[in-house]
Design a protein around this nucleic acid. Structure first.
Lengths: 338, 338
DNA sequence: ACTTTCAATGTAAGCGCTTACATATTTAAT
DNA sequence: ATTAAATATGTAAGCGCTTACATTGAAAGT
């Protein structure tokens, strides 16, 4: 007996006493074949556990029923929640998803994009390192349906689904204007578009009396953790009622945790406002006040739009800005703390 | 100009004034072609941003450089951490990973497995719903290199990388023997092999005086949350110094969070011991005492072994049991609580 | 100068499928 | 019964690559 996986449609055809075309037809389920022969073929397929070769199918022209998804990090709940949203939609439509992570590296992103293109996915969902990255240009050039996630793109020809980051920044500023503190420290990580937008909304709204300190390059949970001793030794937060606006919940959680360990009182001494509202944020050491944008929704909407685009490529490119809201939890509360 | 993506090796060959074979040779980089023609071809490829069709390449026999990964849940940090480990290894070897989630559904798992097989991945990594699931049997039958994750399989012909779950259960029991409590409640979710093993190690070691209550089917974070009021109203934990052994950190975190909200004192009134040590566990409302097994390591080792298996399919099937250790944090501390 | 080698390239046969078109078989219409 | 129409199936031409084998041309050996 032939090794499973090396069996071809021709083998099945022979055993069933029909042509390959007929087998192909029962496989595709669409074309009509006499019920009796269909079951005969099906039986043979079952008997030998034959599995058609997707590569050959794809090459020969049948749709791959696969879409590619590129996110920036696997280890970041932010992106995982997006992927979950995508997955939940694709599953219903019987599409499968090819998920990979760029690790915030443009080159890697481009490689992944190429690879997706060359494996003939029907569409791609990408959370690009930069809205103007080569990957996005390549995708556009390629003519394949695609939707950008977590970025807004100028070009009206590209579809995107993003949180309204400007608005998110404004929300935080409004909160701070309402609940004044003596000092504000901004903590950001990757210099991503979404972050700049958050900041610009923030600064445009914030009382001009504030002169926030800005610390950059704090990217991971651990970075946040490690930052705290620095803040403490430099006396940045010890003496003054400070608010930390951290543009990434992962980092915010890391910082919060360490602050608690170091005995800093939250929210009395220091208040913390994060961004994203990842699932974990509600359950961290001190439940996090943060700007909430449903990542699952971003993923879901992006997937739905992509599927539409695949069905009708001439369709207008949808552009979504999901409205964020500020979720007040314990790390920064509404009553002015003095 | 032809649409990007529809350009073929023949087009390139024509423009470069060579045969398709030569183009193919410069693409594969292995075979020798005169430097001058190589650069000429490369230039044309560059100029037209030609991307070879992976389907065709695969069909024609070149390795796909792709491995399939099936996990049970996307929304569970446990599995994501495994995937991260896998990804970190594959990246170096220039393999790409096709990640998908079975959602604990055997049928879906089987479908995914079939799909991987039919797309000619070079190997697969699977965290099966059940060590004896049809998927595993199919994989074995197919002859494709694969390694099972998070399960130990009897069959010496299948490779696996799993935590030593028995030992993990023992660790918890030993802790409880050392730090006696008045009552133990066991909380489990999916009836997965790993859980049974944890329990059997646990029961075999636990002082026989204990008569634990066992609550099943608590699967998610939210389930954990919702369970608390029940425990409270039934007076299961209000009056007695209780320990909750929760075989899944997600659930443990959900429970902990809710207990804190309900004003239950942890670890004085109730202590909680989880399992897995997902990243979040150290930073939850009450940092979780839990059995730690490095999921990243499981992923890494599994990926390395798979790569080896791909290189040498006759190789003996490795079988790893990662040793767990108990990490004491605040939700259950070593000093007997009375 | 002539054969032998070897490097560089071309030719063409697949890889396993789908599908337009041709052919055979059945059913309906007259 | 005879022909037209409809249905079921077969034939074979690709899909875009890789690669064994054939061919060419030049360097090397005598």
């Amino acid at each position: 007996m032939k090794q499973l996986g090396s069996m071809t449609i021709a083998d099945i055809a022979k055993k069933a006493g029909v042509s390959t075309a007929t087998v192909s037809r029962v496989l595709s389920e669409s074309d009509k074949v006499k019920p009796s022969t269909r079951t005969r073929v099906l039986d043979i397929i079952e008997e030998y556990s034959y599995i058609p070769n997707q590569l050959a199918q794809g090459l020969a022209g049948s749709p791959t029923k696969t879409i590619g998804v590129i996110i920036d990090e696997l280890s970041n709940h932010f992106f995982i929640e997006i992927a979950e949203g995508v997955d939940s939609i694709l599953q219903n439509e019987n599409y499968s998803m090819q998920l990979s992570s760029s690790r915030w590296i443009g080159d890697r992103e481009l490689r992944l994009t190429r690879s997706l293109l060359s494996s003939r996915v029907e569409g791609v969902l990408i959370a690009p390192v930069d809205p103007d990255s080569p990957s996005v240009r390549l995708l556009k050039k390629s003519g394949i349906p695609f939707v950008v996630m977590n970025c807004s793109v100028e070009d009206p020809d590209v579809a995107y689904v993003s949180g309204n980051n400007r608005r998110g920044g404004e929300l935080v500023a409004e909160f701070l204007n309402r609940n004044p503190r003596e000092q504000i420290i901004l903590i950001t990580g990757f210099p991503h578009q979404s972050v700049s937008e958050r900041l610009s909304g923030f600064f445009d709204t914030l009382d001009s009396a504030y002169k926030p300190i800005h610390i950059r390059g704090v990217k991971t949970f651990e970075d946040g953790h490690d930052l705290v001793p620095l803040l403490l030794t430099r006396n940045l937060i010890a003496k003054i009622k400070t608010t930390l606006f951290v543009t990434n919940d992962n980092v915010a959680i890391g910082i919060t945790d360490r602050l608690v360990r170091e005995g800093v009182a939250i929210p009395d001494q220091v208040t913390i406002i994060g961004y994203d509202d990842i699932r974990m944020s509600a359950f961290s050491r001190v439940p996090l006040t943060t700007v909430s944008q449903s990542m699952r929704d971003i993923g879901r909407i992006a997937a739905m739009e992509l599927l539409d685009l695949i069905k009708d490529p001439k369709k207008e490119r949808p552009r979504h800005n999901i409205e964020p809201r500020l979720v007040i939890r314990e790390s920064a509360v509404e009553a002015p703390s003095r």
